[in-house]
């Protein structure tokens, strides 16, 4: 069984590519929804110590909205979206003409719009994952928290923590309207699922 630490370069490339195709598909879905061009960065594959997770997106005390969906059945893992106020303002401005100046004051409608966007993005992401790996994946409903980034990321940390001191992140940035607003998508598979993916793709 592969641990996070002993993946070969080729296997890392394959996982990165999966992240790339999945995120590409999600970006297309988001573009259609907003009627705008969405760019994504080349996904970064990061193996980090669990205690470093809260520092990955600026400081642990930065405020953000975090949306989490759980993957289950053939592949266990989490999809986590982290959005800052600018990104949310742009998104909700396009979708429901809501002006968000303060991340604390998003309306109920705004919150459910954010969840729905995550749902659509995750659906397109997971579809690709399923068809490439021949897996069946169940997606939970999205849950949202608005708080300090570090506190939000406690959830994936405790999810991965029972199996490892490390965490694999496939990190993608969505860029809306040029480079002005960005959001992060983190895909966090657990170790057993990671091995399953590698096996099914025949790159073990």
């Amino acid at each position: 069984m592969h641990d996070y630490t002993n993946l070969g370069e080729f296997q890392k490339d394959v996982i990165r590519e999966l992240g790339n195709i999945g995120a590409g598909n999600a970006a297309t879905a988001l573009g259609k929804l907003l009627n705008d061009r969405i760019e994504i960065t080349v996904p970064a594959l990061k193996f980090i110590e669990i205690n470093e997770i809260s520092g990955i997106l600026g400081g642990p005390e930065n405020e953000a909205a975090g949306i989490i969906l759980r993957l289950s059945e053939d592949i266990d893992g989490l999809l986590v979206y982290l959005m800052d106020c600018d990104f949310i303002n742009h998104l909700l401005g396009c979708l429901i003409c809501e002006d968000v100046k303060d991340i604390r004051s998003i309306s109920e409608l705004g919150l459910s719009a954010l969840k729905e966007v995550s749902n659509i993005l995750s659906g397109s992401f997971v579809n690709v994952l399923c068809s490439f790996t021949g897996s069946k994946i169940r997606l939970s409903l999205p849950e949202i928290a608005i708080d300090m980034v570090g506190a939000i990321l406690n959830f994936p940390a405790s999810f991965a923590g029972e199996m490892s001191d490390q965490l694999l992140l496939v990190e993608v940035e969505f860029i809306l309207s040029g480079d002005s607003v960005q959001s992060h998508l983190l895909l966090i598979p657990d170790i057993r699922s990671l091995n399953k993916i590698i096996e099914r793709l025949g790159v073990g």
């Binding site: 506190a151 990321l153 406690n154």
Partner: peptide
């Protein structure tokens, strides 16, 4: 472990 007069700080605990 900290000795007087130092302070201990932990940032952004959620479920921790």
């Amino acid at each position: 472990i900290a000795f007087s007069p130092d302070k201990l700080v932990s940032y952004a605990l959620g479920s921790c």
